[in-house]
Write a protein that binds this DNA or RNA. Structure first.
Lengths: 216, 216
DNA sequence: TGATTAATTAATTCGCTGGTTAATTAATCT
DNA sequence: AGATTAATTAACCAGCGAATTAATTAATCA
């Protein structure tokens, strides 16, 4: 019971047609609707036979879920890395960390949008379970952090604070391609920095005590 | 050449299985991906035979387009009614008018999202042509209105102003169902009013001259 | 070398969906 | 009443795509 059987041999060396399939799924499923992506299309891009999907993932949905697991896994890592504590010196630092997090998993916002907002019926529950609450919690923590430190104005509504935070941090990524084509704007360092400053401006003056501000 | 032929007889009286089909399309296509909605499903919800789709709209896509035409038609009317001039006494008035506009065509934000942002739509070009530029122009006009009236601070970036305006006005509608289930919040009068005030707060202090403010 | 088993494929099955058709119904007009 | 025509339906068809199968390949072990 050691090393029998034909070894995996996609392309060069080791064990993975599996990895190739997940890679293909990452590309295709992010930019196209679930049903518009055929297993033949995926197999072709991965350079393997479509039956390999059954072999490794049981079904198309199995492959999709494996891909979601991989992406959300990375995102969870990045959230831990950049946003874990929820303890930020300033709201600007939060906006900057959030951008940093997204930059490392740029497929994520659209994937989430498709799963959670659109009822594609692929694995909404699974996705929400895996990432939804954890993700939402970040905004929650930010609210409480600033609330507890006494920097937030008393009249700021918790839900609306979180909602507007979400809107301003996520929506621009949904619009990325559109903004790119219509306005000719790339999401480069300079632009993202301007966005961070702009959002900071809005929140700093809109939700925070004037006396409590410590930088700029 | 007057009144021959069998009269329309869906349910009660007059001329419309057609209307029933568009109604069904409005419900189904907004909450599900295009390919996940079958013509039988639509016909069943409308209470007619699926062949009626061919009869009235030539095809599934024809029905979809007819639905888009109806919704966007209403939206254009509502934009004219509530947002046409772009001349608002305050940013709060703009937020309120925008909410008013959306309330009368609540399917619109998600429909637009699917067509323009996600590649799930069927008639992206058609949709953009019909509503895209006209709609974007509203945010543009708001910027210029306040800029020209000297109320905006000099350092406010035009694109970021428009983007954040879009984010704050549209994103909450994408999240509507999610917020409903996760937070138990309904988008009723009271909540929408709070949202308007909150957004106003952000912009009033974040983008406008302090001396130029005239209410509250 | 031959048994064993993992990896891979070509070919086939089968359910679903959009589309089509031909027949039926129910009204109006002459 | 009989012709005409719009509205409606049941039944059917073709095509696609996911799933499945049965066979084949290529390695390891004994």
């Amino acid at each position: 019971m050691t090393n029998k059987g034909r070894p995996a041999q996609n392309g060069k060396n080791a064990d993975d047609a599996r990895a190739a399939l997940i890679g293909a799924a990452r590309k295709k499923f992010v930019s196209k609707a679930y049903d518009k992506v055929s297993i033949r299309e995926l197999a072709q891009l991965a350079g393997v036979n479509s039956a390999m999907i059954k072999y490794y993932f049981e079904s198309k949905e199995g492959l999709y879920k494996a891909m979601v697991t991989e992406v959300t896994g990375q995102v969870i890592e990045n959230i831990k890395l950049h946003l874990s504590s929820g303890k930020f010196d300033s709201i600007e630092e939060f906006f900057r960390s959030f951008v940093e997090m997204i930059k490392e998993s740029p497929e994520f916002p659209l994937l989430m949008l498709k799963e959670m907002v659109l009822n594609q019926g692929v694995c909404r529950e699974y996705f929400i379970e895996r990432i939804g609450f954890k993700h939402m919690k970040v905004f929650d923590q930010v609210y409480h952090h600033f609330k507890d430190s006494g920097k937030l104005r008393a009249d700021v509504d918790p839900l609306l604070f979180r909602m507007s935070l979400m809107s301003l941090t996520l929506h621009p990524w949904y619009m990325r391609e559109l903004i790119g084509t219509m306005e000719g704007v790339q999401y480069d360092e300079a632009f993202l920095e301007k966005m961070i400053k702009h959002n900071t401006q809005l929140f700093q003056h809109g939700c925070f005590n004037e006396e409590g501000k410590n930088d700029q």
